[in-house]
Nucleic acid binder design. Structure first.
Lengths: 218, 218
DNA sequence: GGGTACACGTGAATC
DNA sequence: TGATTCACGTGTACC
């Protein structure tokens, strides 16, 4: 409401003055200017064209102000009521939306169907503080040293869901290659997680492994 | 490039004329206006203030035009080079981004953690033409008639993936209620699908069922 | 040549 | 009071 009132203060008064001059001051100006022009050249057609131009320009200004008003209406973050500030805020807002769109799109495409990187790094630090520093190291170590580098694990899909307070579900799909199953077991063993339930299935050149893990108490 | 050239045609020429007048025509105008004003009132202070106002206004216009130019640069869909059209396109683009953001957000929240509708309808028609008209009917029928309506199956997540040419993986997560497991079995039995592998697990008030189905040959 | 779009200088209003 | 912002009328360039 504060912004609204300030906006009305800035704009409606101006628009009101504008329409007001369309009635009162406008006639005065016309007579004054006609007198000035008539003293030099009493041309009616030119005066008519001039007034046409005046009203045309007035409409153009009003349209542009209305557009700017509408632009102001669709931009949420309000700072000042300047014309320049309005455009500036609109620009920043558009850039912000673009960045957010790009971020979300990449997140979706990577989360839903994109391939993950071949290096498997389970980083449970972000929201699950069961001391994973050592485990993370172990994973990388066992994967980098123990596994044969000739056939890395090609993770097609990896989903980590947090169900309830202490249950983590890791669902992993990878291409079936040499010792893929063994490697997966090694990796999950190296994690030393408290596994509630694990299921591995091989079919049509792919390996699906679903593991239910209980998080340690912090 | 066409738009770019047209834009330069509209703007750069104007800006060039503006800066040009700042050098050459500006001095001419100053002398002319100073002569006009000096004839009526030879006030140096007022003239100085007037020129201050002039350059100030000139900078303001330039800033506003630059902002409008920058706004134009961040809006992808170009129609016309009008000032009003620029603002209009910016408004439409912002509204479009807002709508898209709202759509994606709702899609994400519904896809990732939201509940699906209680009515289970396996519509395999869209990309898997193994005659499912009858099956679909059977599902709805068995679900609507056989199941006890007091505790409907609350599907939390349903994913249908097509792996290879003839394998369909149906992954289903629902809340664990009375006879949820039995109902799920009934539903999958009523489908009369060629099931390769099925796995049901119950944990923490939820039931997860993963079924590997081989599609019939068409 | 009517029509459109623009930059310009200017007076007024607000802070 | 000086700085800033605005609407206005006008001349000009382009179709």
């Amino acid at each position: 409401m504060d912004n609204c009132d300030e906006f009305k203060h800035y704009w409606d008064t101006n628009l009101f003055l504008q329409t007001e001059e369309l009635d009162s001051s406008w006639g005065i100006d016309e007579t004054a200017f006609s007198g000035y022009y008539d003293s030099s050249s009493p041309d009616g057609a030119q005066s008519c064209a001039a007034s046409k131009n005046i009203v045309s320009e007035r409409n153009r200004r009003k349209k542009l102000n209305d557009r700017l008003y509408a632009l102001r209406a669709v931009v949420p973050n309000i700072t000042k009521m300047d014309k320049a500030s309005i455009i500036k805020d609109a620009i920043e807002h558009i850039q912000q939306l673009h960045e957010q769109e790009r971020r979300i799109q990449s997140e979706i495409s990577e989360l839903e169907s994109g391939k993950l990187k071949s290096n498997i790094v389970f980083d449970f630090d972000q929201e699950t503080p069961f001391n994973s520093k050592s485990k993370k190291k172990k994973i990388e170590q066992s994967y980098d040293s123990g596994g044969s580098q000739s056939s890395p694990i090609d993770v097609l899909e990896l989903r980590v869901s947090y169900m309830g307070e202490r249950t983590v579900v890791v669902s992993l799909t990878c291409s079936k290659r040499t010792d893929t199953m063994v490697k997966l077991c090694e990796i999950f063993e190296s994690l030393k997680l408290k596994i509630i339930n694990a299921n591995i299935t091989a079919f049509s050149g792919r390996v699906l492994k679903t593991v239910f893990v209980e998080r340690r108490r912090s």
